[in-house]
Each structure stands twice: as structure tokens, then as C-alpha cells.
């Protein structure tokens, strides 16, 4: 079964609306794309279209949080983290406002819209801000869990969802917790730490590598910040080599977050599968993922190289 994480977001938000009357939703003229339109349909009196004005939207959400509302503000990742960066910093993070900035169309899998709309730096930007929690769910199941968890958590959160339909990887028993990674496969030779759409690729890579007698651990690190230090250190010690995989620039994202832990606590060999400090471009999402080497095969190649250098 395939479902985009943005679709799961919209559906989870609508369900949440039934459970919690303080939840309000803001969008910047993209409610059809971000799927907040599903919430709007059920709760028009709690939905606010702010027009094409993301800065004002984020600050308005911050204001709503000051009078007891739980605002979810949505737009594309590029505009939420990019256009409204300073509003996120000053009005969400600096004053610990209870605002959830849930963006969609993260990364290059936006596809045909091209590089102008493909955020490859949003995780780095959001992660650099104190007080922020930053989450990149891997599939529809995890997205629903994330939305429910962050609604209960009091504080500023950035979530990045994707546009493209992807496989549902987890069942209802999957558990998401802020600050915790999830070990999906255990192994001894190498660890792949991935998030977002790259989790599926990491799992495929693990299969291929196991056939080549390389024992691979796979961790889903949806919560990039705060990062699960213990899990990273445990697997640095256990496997002695780590590859990160993310649909983001290699600067400042998951690779950066994992490197920060590893370099300080238990240095091991590392490599990454990520964007090579370049912008995206137009094309079909699947073609772009291949073009920019964000695939299971790319992970396998890097893993093999890392494994042989380890010996």
C-alpha cells in the first residue's frame, strides 16, 4: 500500500481535531497540497487561510498559542523553514511557543516544480535553532503517530512531510517518541541511520547487503533533534561504521546530527547518502532520486566501500 506522508498528515490532523478542540490550523494558500484541506472541511471555524504570507502565518500561529490554542501551521518546507525562518526563530523557538510547523513537499521528491521548490536545507536551518524539535517521518503510519505525539508535547516543533506516494512501512504497533530512534534491523558490520523517504531505501539496501554477507543494522532517526545519542553511540560501538541516508543536503542535516554525536563520544568511520551540496531540478520524483543517487543502490555502494575500509 502506498500513501504520501502529507496525506497521512491531513488525515491525522482531522482526527486530532475531533479529539482536541484547541487544535487550530493555518495554511498559506496551499491547503489542497498540504492536505490541511481535510481538516478545513470538518472544522471550517478552526481553519485559517492566511494567504500567500508565510511570515505572518507563523507569527499568527505564535499569537494563537499564547491564548491557549494548539496551532498547526502548514506550507511547503521551502517556505516554512526558508521564508519564515526568522518568525520560527523569534516567535516559535525563542519564546518556546506551542506551535507546530508541519511542512510538506520536503526534499527533491517534490519533482516537477523544480529546484526553487525543493528544500534541501530546511533540516539544517531548523536544527540550528535552540528549543526546536525537528522530525522527518518515514511513512504514513509514523506520520500519524508523530502528529499525535507533538500535539501533546508543549513547545515548538518542525515536521517535514513528503509529496510523493510511498510504501507504508510500519504497522499500528510502531512506536514514535520524541528524542528516540527506532532500530528496524539489527546487525554487526555496519549501521545505516536514515529518515524520511530514505528509510525505505535503507531497508532495501540492508536486504541486498545481507545477501552479500554484510550484516547491517538499520535505524530510523525520524527525530533529528533532539537526537537519540544513546542509540547512535551504542551502534557506533557495535558496528564501528555508520552511513546516514537523507533526502537533504549533506551539510547540517542527519549526517551532521549523527556526526556531532559520533565525533564527540565514539569516533568511527562514517559516510553519507545525501545531496552533494547542490540544488535540485525538475523531473519525475523517482528519476530525481536516481539522478541524485538517493537510492538503495547508492547506499549499498557506500556501505561496501565503508565495510572494506573497516577491515
Amino acid at each position: 500500500m502506498k500513501k504520501a506522508t502529507r496525506q497521512a498528515y491531513g488525515e491525522a490532523l482531522e482526527k486530532l481535531g475531533h479529539k482536541n478542540s484547541n487544535v487550530v490550523v493555518l495554511d498559506a494558500d496551499l491547503s489542497g497540497s498540504t492536505k490541511t484541506s481535510i481538516f478545513k472541511k470538518s472544522f471550517p471555524e478552526r481553519f485559517f487561510n492566511m494567504g500567500i504570507a508565510e511570515a505572518n502565518m507563523v507569527d499568527t500561529a505564535a499569537g494563537l498559542s499564547q491564548v491557549g490554542k494548539i496551532p498547526f501551521a502548514s506550507t511547503f518546507s521551502m517556505f516554512g523553514a526558508g521564508r519564515a525562518f526568522e518568525q520560527v526563530r523569534q516567535s516559535m523557538a525563542y519564546q518556546m511557543a506551542n506551535v507546530k510547523l508541519v511542512t510538506t513537499h520536503g526534499g527533491i521528491s517534490v519533482g516537477e516544480d523544480g529546484g526553487s521548490h525543493q528544500s534541501i536545507e530546511d533540516i539544517a536551518i531548523m536544527r540550528a535553532i535552540p528549543n526546536m524539535t525537528v522530525i522527518v517521518p518515514a511513512d504514513a503510519t509514523e506520520t500519524e503517530k508523530v502528529i499525535n505525539v507533538i500535539a501533546e508535547y508543549v513547545g515548538p516543533v518542525y515536521v517535514r512531510c513528503s509529496r510523493m506516494d510511498t510504501d507504508v512501512l510500519f504497522d499500528e504497533n510502531y512506536h514514535f517518541e520524541i528524542g528516540k530512534g527506532n532500530l528496524l534491523k539489527d546487525g554487526d558490520d555496519i549501521t545505516i541511520i536514515a529518515n524520511g523517504l530514505m528509510v525505505e531505501e535503507a531497508l532495501k539496501a540492508q536486504q541486498i547487503l545481507s545477501e552479500k554477507n554484510i550484516s547491517v543494522a538499520v535505524i530510523n532517526m525520524a527525530c533529528v533533534k533532539p537526537i537519540d545519542k544513546e542509540l547512535v553511540i551504542t551502534y557506533a560501538k557495535k558496528t564501528g561504521a555508520i552511513i546516514t541516508a537523507e533526502e537533504h543536503n549533506y551539510v547540517g542535516g542527519l549526517y551532521g546530527a549523527v556526526s556531532e554525536v559520533v565525533s564527540k563520544h565514539y569516533p568511527v568511520r562514517m559516510d553519507y547518502v545525501a545531496m552533494e551540496d547542490q540544488f535540485g531540478k525538475s523531473g519525475k520524483p523517482e528519476d530525481l532520486m536516481r539522478y541524485f543517487n538517493l537510492t538503495a543502490d547508492a547506499i549499498v555502494k557506500k556501505a561496501e566501500a565503508l565495510y572494506s575500509s573497516k577491515k
Binding site: 487550530v24 471555524e45 478552526r46 485559517f48 511570515a55 505572518n56 507563523v58 507569527d59 499568527t60 500561529a61 505564535a62 499569537g63 494563537l64 498559542s65 499564547q66 491564548v67 491557549g68 490554542k69 496551532p71 526568522e86 518568525q87 523569534q90 516567535s91 525563542y94 519564546q95
Partner: peptide, 24 residues
């Protein structure tokens, strides 16, 4: 009520508060 100082943010936050108070 809200952190300000970086200019241009306050009216937007005031809007949010005004909307929320009206809703209630």
C-alpha cells in the same frame, strides 16, 4: 505577553491572540 524586538512581528502575533480570544 510575547517576545518582540525583532521588528515587524508584533502585529501578526496580536492578530493570533485576537483571533483566539474571539474564538473563545
Amino acid at each position: 505577553e510575547v517576545a518582540t524586538g525583532s521588528l515587524g512581528h508584533g502585529l501578526s502575533m496580536a492578530n493570533g491572540m485576537a483571533i483566539g480570544l474571539k474564538m473563545d
